[in-house]
Design a binder for these strands. Structure first.
Lengths: 198, 198
DNA sequence: AAAAATATACCAACCGTTCTGTATTTTGTC
DNA sequence: GACAAAATACAGAACGGTTGGTATATTTTT
């Protein structure tokens, strides 16, 4: 695979990512991708074996982008509660509010569309969310070990709730495009996290 | 329009509602509806002018069903905070957890799929959510007038947050089908509402 | 018999995919 | 660094099947 091929392949992935996020997977046709990339069918199918194949490549790219934004400046944050706060803020203000994907959040859109349609694809997305929740969970346990939070909290439930609230903001912001949606959620979740402190 | 016609029309709406909720609007074909209803195209297009026309009828039916479940036993609840609590519980336990629509929540699914695709259809769905939030808002103001809640609360923000959290639970429950998802959300939101009290 | 409901047959446009042929790069050899 | 051989990248036509929708004929209900 030469340098040229890699470049056009990346271009296809980049283009398909935006198209999938706006139009959805099923309602984005191969022709849509061809028109946006100025490729032809032969060119496209030289890089990907199928439409589903494109989706998996797009998913990986989306994860790469998402990680870069959501975990920016997070590793160096020592206080685990501050780290959670920072991550939530990044996810809502910079990722969601930053309109990184034209159609809102690629992952939520795909999760909703593919649930009950493609077991393997929706599983892939769902595992991403589960992994995110588990990460928040470990940070909560770290806060517990450091004696920063109240006793008797259900960390899994709290981590899940954070992910749930973020997801809810995504669905409404994607539709209404009112920045108040994610701003309010940041504010409410900061308050929520504050309530956990000792 | 005779009795027979009304009956088959209702049957189409009922069937299409389930299909749309599972497969989505675009990925449900007219043929899918025909196979499930054992009708033919001529029969179907005698009742509806277009696929979009079917969707609007389905939307109204979905609202009817949703209202029946979410507001069950709510009107007779005098305490506005209890009324909110009851509504949230109905929405998560009976509506979402009751698997009323096979594919999860029809409204959230449609909101995600139709945003940026059909302005008129997604607007219809979004207005439903806005209306729900406004209703919760009026109940919060009622609670305020009765001196039941703390001073200085942003009622719109709180009402929006409740809707957002419910929506987030919907997306994750629809995909994972783990009842813990909505149970945890009920628990967290009850706690959240409790915090508002004087 | 009139009216309503449904069936049949058909359309042009589009779907994802595969095929063959042809440029265009990349690579190995000198 | 020049040059041919090999590998890669791309174009474009064609495939069988499906899409939403329509016009007309037939059956069923009233």
């Amino acid at each position: 695979m030469g340098a040229k091929g890699i470049k056009t392949r990346q271009q296809v992935v980049k283009t398909a990512l935006q198209l999938f996020s706006v139009k959805g997977y099923f309602n984005t046709s191969i022709n849509d991708i061809l028109e946006s990339t100025r490729l032809t069918k032969g060119g496209l199918y030289g890089h990907f074996r199928s439409k589903e194949d494109i989706w998996y490549a797009v998913y990986e790219e989306a994860v790469r982008i998402w990680r870069g934004i959501v975990f920016k400046g997070v590793r160096k944050t020592v206080d685990p509660l501050k780290r959670i706060e920072k991550t939530v803020e990044n996810a809502l203000r910079d990722y969601l509010g930053g309109n990184v994907f034209e159609g809102g959040c690629f992952f939520v859109n795909m999760l909703v569309e593919l649930s009950g349609q493609s077991a393997s694809m929706s599983k892939q997305v769902l595992e991403g969310f589960v992994g995110f929740s588990k990460l928040l969970n470990t940070w909560l346990e770290e806060a517990d070990r450091k004696g920063l939070v109240k006793k008797g909290l259900d960390f899994k439930e709290i981590a899940d709730f954070l992910v749930i609230a973020i997801n809810g903001a995504v669905t409404l912001y994607s539709a209404g495009r009112d920045p108040a949606t994610w701003k309010q959620t940041v504010s409410q979740l900061k308050f929520f996290i504050h309530q956990l402190k000792k």
